[in-house]
């Protein structure tokens, strides 16, 4: 047996890549994640088919943002679908993943084994947050791809008429669609941090998911109450629909930057809160 003096040499410190990879695989291997992504993929297909059927009836398309342009250019199905899932559906899936991230591990008891591995509390939290952000991008990408494929199959494509009236070639329209998807994914970062914080508060994955999604609903409702207009600019979904500004010529950056700033602020505030809570918490589960 080795005497204690020779004991623990400082271990070689590695970054999180191996662990992050493991975390990402874990997230996407779950049936729950796959099911949520499948439902997200179904939205553009449903919208596309519905628009297609209605317009062949000879009914003039109308309704929500971008819907009327879909029949002229399939690319608009991307924007219409993202606008449709952004207020509730997309963040709901993020709320499930973020809310379950730490609380789920605590609930199943695997948290104690990760911590004695030792994953390191700060490192574990960082990996959980990073994996949640990866999920934000993946979920948005799924909507983008499903909408793109459906749009191209069901509708004509070609030059894209931007919101400001100018026409750009399809290739540029496509890159703007990618930029829109990236903006949408980044819009979810603040909410993801909020979910992570909630997740550090409880040992029940279900409770954390329900609370996180409940917070989303509450905030969305608060956002519609005009008497509360003073607090609206501080609510995380306030600038979400600013992604449409990427479809102007020139791009109107004001709202976008305000959105990213707000998301960053949420990430810092709730990320720190989650860290403060998680690094001092007794893990008894």
């Amino acid at each position: 047996m080795s005497p204690v003096e020779t004991a623990p040499q400082a271990p070689r410190l590695r970054g999180a890549p191996g662990f992050l990879g493991s975390e990402i695989r874990l997230t996407f291997r779950r049936w729950r994640t796959v099911a949520m992504l499948a439902v997200l993929a179904a939205v553009p297909v449903l919208v596309g088919v519905a628009v297609r059927i209605r317009t062949s009836d000879g009914d003039a398309a109308g309704g929500p943002a971008f819907l009327s342009q879909i029949t002229n250019n399939g690319l608009f199905l991307v924007f219409a679908s993202l606008a449709a899932v952004l207020p509730f559906f997309l963040p709901m899936t993020v709320g499930v993943v973020a809310g379950d991230s730490v609380a789920g591990e605590a609930g199943s008891g695997t948290l104690r084994y990760l911590l004695v591995a030792p994953a390191g509390r700060t490192r574990l939290l960082a990996v959980k947050f990073a994996a949640t952000v990866v999920f934000c991008f993946a979920a948005t990408a799924v909507v983008l791809l499903a909408a793109l494929v459906t749009g191209v199959l069901l509708f004509p494509v070609g030059d894209v008429t931007l919101l400001s009236g100018t026409s750009v070639p399809f290739a540029e329209g496509l890159s703007r669609a990618l930029a829109v998807a990236a903006a949408v994914a980044l819009s979810l970062v603040g909410f993801a941090a909020l979910g992570l914080f909630v997740s550090t508060l409880t040992g029940s994955g279900i409770a954390a998911m329900a609370t996180t999604v409940g917070l989303l609903m509450t905030v969305q409702i608060l956002g519609t109450v005009p008497q509360l207009s003073a607090v609206h600019p501080y609510l995380f979904p306030h600038h979400w629909l600013s992604f449409a500004d990427l479809l102007r010529d020139p791009v109107y950056w004001d709202g976008l930057l305000r959105n990213f700033g707000l998301q960053g602020l949420y990430a810092v505030v709730f990320g720190s809160a989650a860290w403060a809570r998680f690094t001092t918490r007794d893990v008894t589960a």
Partner: peptide, 27 residues
């Protein structure tokens, strides 16, 4: 350590469970 009984990811195989815990160890 084995603390208060085992805790596993039920949807992973036995080998994948160990791979994950090994990945959690930065050393």
């Amino acid at each position: 350590a084995l603390i208060e009984g085992p805790a596993l990811y039920g949807y992973l195989t036995g080998r994948e469970n160990l791979l994950r815990l090994d990945a959690a160890d930065p050393t």
